[in-house]
Write a protein that binds this DNA or RNA. Structure first.
Length: 783
DNA sequence: CGTGAATACACCGGTAACCCAGTTC
DNA sequence: ACCGGTGTATTCACG
């Protein structure tokens, strides 16, 4: 279908696409248009990755906007939100505006109300619904990207419930669901009352194959000699083979350690194919990575990058991840070995994708369990760079003849699994039942069940009554913890907040009104798992003395909203000791030591809490990543989550009139900035992070007011760079921030003569060399 | 024949990832 | 279940 045949788009849209080199629609896109994508029809598009799904969504959204409406694009990852936003920003050339909102982007509702297209994560949308954002009712089109994630145990139910709520809010809403090819796209379409566009068409051909011995055999019957030389591994041979033709590769492995080891080895392959120019560019990139954070992980990564290879996993900082992704997309990096993060994340296509590990450790399976077909297909779908490769190759590695057969059967010929709703799991329902009641979507048990009838779960459920049963259990739990009350009847809850496991004492009465208590409303709005809230409330209520930071950190670390560190061998002893030393500080009731599982969890939370406490005691990144055997990205993640949970804890403390609100706020501020109590004032000045604050403090500057009055030489002596010092003084509100002619006074009191870096007078450049060292002071605080 | 380096082998430890708040004096 | 890292045994090149 030719672009010009399209109607209903904003004027200028078609020529915009033509300028981008798009002349006609791909077959699935044309099918989508025929199915009514541009006319407000509901649509499920189950098509392979990288076959132009976004364009289908774009056509629907733009036509909705042209009809005077407003569109929402739901993504599963923050990184994807930024990626889509950047893509949609181009619509501005014909007057369509885009906004993003995710947990880390601050944005106010009213600002979003003015945008035509809004990009958000599913959790953010859920949260917006809970908080009753007005503009949600203005929506006329919602796109759900990667809708097959409904299958995900943790996050799937959120997406499912959110879609159901959006549709209930606005029955005329057009729903466009984009999915990978899955086993039961028709069921999803039924659920959404949507037309189904199902296609295996790809703009670039994808060849799937298995490598065994010295041969690579493809699904179309063709073979290719890829000999394994000497002691090298299969993946090295495959990477070398394609690199000699100028193609990059992506290697998927099943653990971080494997990713790092593979990248190290593959660097030996890629380094041989680099031009001098690439070598210098890679050296620069390596420096950027080292500057971003000074940790062993960073150094290892930088060493690989210098040789044209990289590893990629969630232990990397987000900056490092983007650096690697961008350099790979720019063809500077020749190979990435990655954990599955990369398959789900931003677009990083490669000529050849190698799925080395197709089994993953899964304790519940008692060992290694094979990956889902869907997951492997997602990885393989990364093969083939549009415009660069004639076709993409996806290769599985076999180490025996039997393996070879199995891989063909299991992954090459196999159809992906069906998507199954996970809504009836108790943890998921706990949070969504409360939210549904709190935000007024349901006011009675019947209303609640009726609402749940509108979910995919209900349309799939074979086990009648299961949802109802779990719902009752969850309601009982919510009532017991004073999040929900039944009005009319005796609504006094039994106050046994200590019982965190739902007993089966179900509520018999059926026709009373359900209502969220004030506490329940708060919990729902704060986006907390009710169980987390109960744990926090209980911990705070039980505190007789002012809780310490460690106590609060351990408390939030043991909630289900914190993904805690686990104990390594020997650490149970180490943290057992810490537990006995600091037991008095911990909040709530510790489980008995004989309850193995629960005690271990408690210690694991203590470990996580201690990590946060160490961070707030100003230990540096290098020491922490080393001590806890984690990457910079993990540290950042924990700090982030703790910040959020302690913020929520502060609201809860206010809600229950706890006397420890201030203690919670302080603990939160300390973890946010990574500083001791005494530096809290200083870090409130913009440009002052944990390191600079400590240095200023050591020089006698204890609060922002001191920055306004102290001898400027002292500030310069501490902060080195003149520009830095000026900016900070300005941010502190000093009248005369200029550093012109100021001589630095070193912390030891001596007046440094301007000669320390060459003695070229007191011009602005004399201190630039020391600036770099100072810059990474904010490496973590700045994200 | 002795030294140090390269290779071979056995054993042990450890195992992916994601999202998220409303408000105040 | 399996990989990579580590520590130790074995082999080999060479003076």
């Amino acid at each position: 279908m030719n672009l010009e045949e399209l109607s209903g788009l904003p004027p200028g849209a078609v020529s915009h696409f033509q300028q981008e080199g798009i002349e006609s629609l791909y077959p699935p896109q044309a099918e989508a248009v025929e199915a009514g994508a541009t006319e407000g029809e509901n649509l499920v598009a189950a098509v392979p990755t990288a076959s132009g799904k976004t364009m289908i969504a774009t056509l629907a959204m733009l036509s909705a906007v042209e009809r005077g409406g407003k569109a929402l694009y739901i993504v599963p990852l923050r990184a994807l939100a930024s990626e889509k936003k950047a893509e949609f920003d181009a619509f501005e050339s014909f007057g369509v505006t885009t906004g993003v909102t995710t947990g880390n982007y601050e944005s106010t509702d009213d600002w979003l109300a003015t945008k035509d297209v809004i990009v958000a994560t599913s959790e953010k949308v859920d949260s917006l619904v809970r908080n009753g954002a007005d503009w949600l009712t203005d929506l006329t089109c919602v796109v759900s990207d990667e809708v097959h994630l409904i299958d995900d145990r943790n996050r799937g139910p959120t997406l499912e419930v959110t879609l159901a709520k959006l549709r209930r809010l606005n029955p005329a809403l057009q729903v466009v669901a984009l999915s990978a090819t899955v086993g039961n796209a028709d069921e999803i379409a039924d659920w959404l009352d949507a037309e189904l566009v199902h296609s295996d068409w790809r703009p670039i051909d994808l060849r799937m194959g298995v490598h065994y011995g010295n041969a690579l055999e493809f699904d179309d019957g063709s073979t290719r000699e890829v000999p394994v030389e000497g002691s090298e591994k299969q993946e090295a041979a495959l990477v070398r083979d394609i690199l000699q033709e100028g193609g990059s590769s992506l290697v998927f492995v099943n653990s971080r350690r494997n990713a790092e080891a593979a990248a190290r080895r593959l660097g030996g392959v890629s380094r041989r194919e680099l031009t001098d120019e690439e070598r210098t560019e890679l050296a620069d990139l390596a420096d950027e990575i080292r500057e971003d954070s000074d940790t062993e992980t960073s150094r290892d990564l930088a060493d690989c990058v210098e040789r044209g290879s990289a590893f990629h996993h969630a232990g990397l900082s987000s900056t490092q991840r983007s650096l690697v992704e961008d350099a790979f997309r720019d063809r500077l990096l020749k190979v990435i070995s990655a954990t599955p993060t990369l398959a789900a994340g931003v677009n990083t296509p490669a000529r050849r994708v190698i799925v080395r590990d197709w089994r993953r450790f899964d304790p519940s399976a008692g060992g290694m369990a094979p990956l889902d077909v869907l997951e492997v297909h997602q990885m393989m779908g990364r093969a083939g760079r549009p415009g660069l490769d004639p076709y993409g190759e996806a290769v599985l590695l076999a180490n025996s003849h039997d393996d070879r057969e199995e891989l063909f059967d299991r992954y090459v010929w196999a159809d992906p699994e069906a998507v199954r709703s996970k809504l009836a799991a108790e943890p998921a329902l706990r949070t969504h039942v409360l939210a549904t009641i709190a935000s007024g979507f349901a006011r009675t048990r019947e209303g609640l069940l009726e609402f749940l009838e509108a979910t995919l779960y209900a349309s799939q459920s074979s086990e009648a009554g299961r949802l109802e049963r779990v719902t009752d259990e969850v309601l009982a739990y919510l009532e017991r913890n004073d999040f929900v009350a039944r009005s009319g009847g005796g609504s006094e809850s039994d106050q046994d907040t200590g019982a965190f496991t739902a007993a089966a004492d179900l509520a018999e009465s059926t026709d009373e009104d359900l209502e969220a208590t004030s506490l329940g409303h708060t919990v729902s709005r704060l986006y907390l798992d009710p169980m987390s809230a109960a744990e926090i409330v209980h911990g705070l209520e039980g505190a007789d003395e002012r809780p310490t930071a460690l106590g609060l950190y351990q408390l939030v670390s043991r909630t289900p909203d914190m993904y805690e560190l686990y104990l390594r061998s020997g650490e149970d002893e180490k943290f057992g000791e810490l537990f006995y030393e600091r037991e008095a500080e911990l909040l709530g009731d510790p489980p008995s030591e004989y309850e193995d599982h629960r005690f271990e969890d408690w210690l694991a939370a203590l470990k996580t809490g201690k990590l946060l406490a160490d961070w707030a005691a100003e230990d540096d990144e290098e020491a922490l990543t080393e001590r806890y055997k984690i990457g910079p990205g993990d540290l950042r993640g924990k700090v982030d989550t703790a910040e959020w949970l302690l913020g929520a804890a502060e609201s809860l403390a206010r809600e229950i009139d706890s006397e420890w609100t201030v203690a919670v706020r302080e603990a939160r501020a300390r973890v946010e900035h990574g500083v001791s109590e005494e530096l809290l004032e200083l870090v409130s000045v913009r440009g002052v992070g944990r390191k600079r604050a400590r240095q200023l403090y050591a020089a006698g500057i204890e609060e922002p007011a001191d920055l306004r009055t102290v001898d400027k030489g002292v500030v310069l002596g501490v902060l080195k760079g003149e520009k830095t010092a000026e900016t900070i003084l300005e941010n502190a509100g000093r009248e005369d921030p200029s550093m012109d002619g100021v001589e630095p006074i070193e912390p030891d009191g001596t007046v440094a003569t301007g000669g320390s870096s060459g003695g070229d007078g007191d011009g602005g450049s004399s201190t630039t060399t020391t600036d770099d060292a100072d810059d990474n002071q904010s490496s973590l605080g700045d994200f």
